[in-house]
Design a protein around this nucleic acid. Structure first.
Lengths: 163, 163
DNA sequence: CATGAAAATTTGAGAGC
DNA sequence: GCTCTCAAATTTTCATG
């Protein structure tokens, strides 16, 4: 049942417990219990607003591959914190491969992106290389569920999964 | 004021209008008006749950660079839709550069990742190349705000950090 | 996991600046 | 035009079986 709740909440995190209850087939208070448990268990980390970057004057997004050399803790810790503090930064990934970090940024326009790369990345001594990829379009995908959970309600269509 | 509201809501999208009002310094109904307006204007697209992938049995995340050849509409449209439908996919980026797509995936383990790459990517005729980068760690960054918005609360208002 | 009541919030209408 | 006050509808929350 938790999975059912999570799937519904990922479609719209503002769904009321009443609607949740109606769709899952239990009482609203039960939904509250389950969701509270999921929250306390750390499965639900928080609720984030999904904003239109273009409407906020950040119509250009890009992914920056960054090589940090030497790749030592003393350097990469402050580097990540500095990047995270940038208003343009959306997500920072520490990844395997020749490039150490992948930074998703949202900027106003090309001039803004150029300024960001030159002033905040290549200007730093520990940044050995930056590769910029512009984002044409992006798609958020379906709900994140445990492996094997599938999307259906289960065999027979009327069965209730029990936890 | 809208910016102030957006900043607070990005910290926690579940903040009540009452708390919002207290922190911004206006009446709750005014907050409702502004947020409703932002929602109708399309600035606020929706509310998303932030989940712990590891707690859902998807402790391994990766970024896949994918080359789709030939890069024509008849091929890339279905390709994107197919990838979006994968339970493992989280985000798909269409980007500039030698690699056409960057796909953020969350899987159970290395064997699961191998299966995903072999069965869902390289097995497809239009996929010319896949490059896999594992994600050590990732950080979501601060609120997305218009360029130049800074962090100040503006004249007259006392900036309050949340409790 | 359900019931049912109490507390809090959301929501809309109308007044005032 | 924008914000506030006030009251009703709805939702959240909790004690209990």
């Amino acid at each position: 049942m938790d999975l059912h709740l999570l799937r519904l909440l990922q479609n719209d995190a503002r769904t009321t417990y009443r609607d949740l209850a109606a769709q899952v087939g239990v009482a609203p208070s039960t939904c509250l219990d389950r969701v509270t448990r999921l929250r306390r268990a750390g499965v639900i980390l928080g609720h984030r607003l999904q904003l239109d970057a273009a409407k906020l004057g950040r119509g250009l997004q890009a992914l920056l591959s960054v090589q940090v050399r030497p790749h030592r803790r003393e350097l990469v810790g402050p580097f990540v914190e500095r990047i995270r503090a940038l208003p343009e930064a959306r997500t920072v990934f520490h990844v395997t491969g020749p490039d150490d970090y992948l930074v998703h940024v949202a900027v106003a326009d090309m001039a803004d992106l150029q300024r960001l790369v030159l002033d905040e990345f290549t200007a730093r001594r520990e940044v050995a290389r930056v590769e910029t990829r512009l984002i044409f379009q992006q798609w958020e995908c379906g709900p994140l569920l445990p492996p094997g959970a599938g999307t259906g309600a289960g065999p027979g269509g009327g069965g209730h999964a029990q936890s």
